[in-house]
């Protein structure tokens, strides 16, 4: 895949013409091309890149002149913090609301929840983000509009979650990023609940006289968590990869914004390095999803062993 990106970005254009000062003449331009190693044939560039990559060096950013990996890792903390907060919000809000709407599908409040969840993913993230700034920062003045707040270090993790100022900066972007996922979790939970409640094991459990809390909390939840975990596993990666828009609007110094800027400026080393990191992250997430999956659903595990 690195091949695809490497060559793909090469087809798009040449960063040099955008980077050089307009005062530069052809000689300057040629020198920059040489400096960045772009005068070599693309295959040779790729071989050099692979050689470097094998030694853990993914090249230097054209724009920042720094190691691409270092650049990304410096931006990673802010993005992870944002994504985890968004994921937490999605689960904390989505599952209870979805359960409620699934258990009492005919109540008015359930209908309101479902309709709002449709609204939640009907509007583009950037539009909602701007509206949030408009309402909560500009009009009400409750929360800061942009940027990341103060950070503090706790248990070796530096994050803005640990300061009040940091949290206040985090709320809007995290909510913006979580919005679509909240809707998704509500819908998945509700769908699962409605289906689950009609299944035999729930009926038996109820027939046995178990309390509703236990039936819902243990038997039902365990079963509907399967699709939710699958989807959220996928969505966490996309939260990170697609935080691009939220980070752009809220001026959040994360790697999503770094990516889109690198793409727009054809900073190939950064884009390639970013993708390799994301791929690695995804493989890990999927492994985790599979593990959680088999814990939640012994049938999967048994089947695998039975082969």
């Amino acid at each position: 895949m690195s091949v695809l990106v490497f060559f793909g970005l090469n087809i798009i254009g040449d960063p040099v013409y955008m980077l050089v000062s307009p005062d530069a003449d052809q000689e300057d331009i040629d020198r920059v091309i040489r400096n960045l190693g772009l005068d070599r044939p693309i295959l040779e560039q790729y071989v050099l890149f692979v050689k470097g990559a094998l030694q853990g060096d993914l090249g230097n950013s054209f724009i920042f002149g720094e190691s691409a990996l270092g650049l990304i890792s410096r931006h990673m903390g802010a993005t992870l913090e944002l994504a985890f907060t968004a994921l937490f919000l999605a689960i904390a809000i989505g599952i209870p609301l979805g359960l409620y709407a699934g258990l009492y599908p005919n109540r008015m409040s359930s209908r309101v929840i479902m309709t709002s969840s449709i609204l939640g993913f009907s509007l583009p993230t950037f539009w909602v983000g701007l509206m949030m700034i408009l309402i909560f920062s500009v009009q009400l003045g409750w929360l800061p509009s942009t940027g990341r707040g103060d950070t503090a270090t706790f248990l070796g993790i530096t994050s803005s979650i640990f300061t009040l100022n940091g949290l206040s900066h985090l709320i809007l972007p995290a909510a913006n990023l979580a919005l679509l996922k909240v809707s998704l979790v509500i819908r998945l939970t509700r769908a699962g609940t409605r289906e689950g409640m009609q299944q035999d094991y729930i009926k038996f459990a109820r027939a046995k006289g178990l309390s509703t809390t236990r039936v819902v909390g243990v038997h039902l939840l365990k079963n509907i968590l399967i699709p939710i975990v699958t989807v959220l596993g996928l969505e966490f990666g996309s939260l990170i990869a697609f935080s691009v828009v939220t980070e752009t609007i809220f001026a959040w110094p994360g790697m999503g914004r770094l990516l889109i800027e690198s793409i727009l400026q054809l900073d190939r080393p950064v884009v390639v390095a970013y993708l390799m990191i994301i791929v690695a992250l995804f493989v890990v997430i999927n492994l985790l999803v599979d593990v959680v999956y088999s814990i939640l659903d012994p049938r999967v595990r048994l089947k695998e062993q039975g082969k």
């Binding site: 700034i133 920062s137 509009s145 940027g147 752009t248 001026a251």
Partner: peptide, 18 residues
């Protein structure tokens, strides 16, 4: 110096006093 590249967000930041 804070970079806020999105135009409306930049205006909002000013209006919000950030």
């Amino acid at each position: 110096y804070k970079p806020i590249k999105s135009g409306p967000a930049r205006v909002a930041a000013l209006l919000a006093g950030d």
